[in-house]
Design a protein around this nucleic acid. Sequence first.
DNA 1: CGCGCAGTTGAGACCTCTCAATGTGAGTGG
DNA 2: CCACTCACATTGAGAGGTCTCAACTGCGCG
Lengths: 235, 235
Amino acid sequence: MSDEERNAILGLPCEFIDVAANHDFIRLGENSRHACLVAEGLVGRFAQTAAGARQIFALHIPGDMADLHSLVAPEASTGLQALSRSTMLAVPHAALLPLLDLYPGIGRAFWRDSIVDTSILSTWVLNLGCRSGGARLAHLLCEMAVRYALIGRGRDLRFDLPATQLHLAECTGMTSVHLNRMMMELRGRGLVRTRTPKIEIIDWKGLTELAGFDAGYLCLPSSAAEQVRLALRVR
Amino acid sequence: MSDEERNAILGLPCEFIDVAANHDFIRLGENSRHACLVAEGLVGRFAQTAAGARQIFALHIPGDMADLHSLVAPEASTGLQALSRSTMLAVPHAALLPLLDLYPGIGRAFWRDSIVDTSILSTWVLNLGCRSGGARLAHLLCEMAVRYALIGRGRDLRFDLPATQLHLAECTGMTSVHLNRMMMELRGRGLVRTRTPKIEIIDWKGLTELAGFDAGYLCLPSSAAEQVRLALRVR
DNA sequence: CGCGCAGTTGAGACCTCTCAATGTGAGTGG
DNA sequence: CCACTCACATTGAGAGGTCTCAACTGCGCG
């Protein structure tokens, strides 16, 4: 984006919103009039079956736009839930939409952001469809380690993931009971140490191998990839 | 889109490409220089694990843009495979990109198209994470019935789905053996009649209930929803 | 100090995979 | 027209992964 475009974005009106843990602040089927940027906390995008089973299909950490897509498809049938106490920055669609016509670069950047989300989502599909429970959990931990490192909140493969095991189970398509057993197995194998919400990856190589993790799907520019490597202090 | 924008699109240079069944015409990790519109056949977007397990996470039928996302994120790590003999219409990125700057409406329409793909993908995640094998298959059949009806290729809940059971298994995260058993169960319950590639849904209500299917995620404008109802001759 | 949520544990049922064999139909060459 | 071949669908049996349900533990918070 150009400086002009960047400034247009920074000049946008917005409003801080505080959300309690486990609160669905955008309900399923609700039409949203804002785009939400996560300022603090952890937010999950989810949907659920008629039977009540809930699936989380994206985790948003500080700095993420959680529902940019609502700009062009406000009727989307997914909800947004704070997994821990979170604060959001809500930007009205009414203020954002005109920028899209004025600055093609902004639209393209937003589109690209959606594509990255989709790439992550695709990888989650690959996980759910092709990998065992333990590998799915390991993959999620690898992903979050990299993403937290990227925003400067992970050092030495240690980071806070403010989600309960039930939340993680809803991400990885498992029962919380089974997730617990898988988590214990990762610990038992000496791959991670966890004590909610703290996660510490002890054996990065082992964990990524078990998970089949390759950070490519996060669509990092090569400069960022370098940065992650440094932040993780890996290799 | 305005007429002017529509005309700009129709004036784009393009090239027909014929692809044999089971041919990966965009390999994993390959950088694409074209956007592909499916003209005929069935195309799957896929990725695979290091162990070789393949997951299809989108099916594209005639009229779909199979990899619009490559325009803004050409390095995406997914492949494109023809599931049956297909013909594609390839539009060079070089010709498409300038339009994005000239016509904001085009960019927004493309973005919206990506969002719809993402919405479908989200629903596949919900399927994989929360539903049993039989329900996943039923859901896929419901989705394809609606989508084929929308492009005028489904009448009375009958349509051709030129994919093998192995392909369907790769879509739904099952073994082909298990998919076969689930397919036989759907038949046994009197929900569908199938004989590759023909699919006939006998009991729409029963199938949608088993699947927990709700067409909302396809993001149809209300006019199209009406149209589908007519095409399916349901309700 | 007690309540309640989150994590942990156990046992049995069920779903899905694995591997291997068999059936079936369309196309092909003789 | 028949034998052959190949891809795909179907079947069986046993192993393993995951779920269910129910109980129990540990810890933070009021």
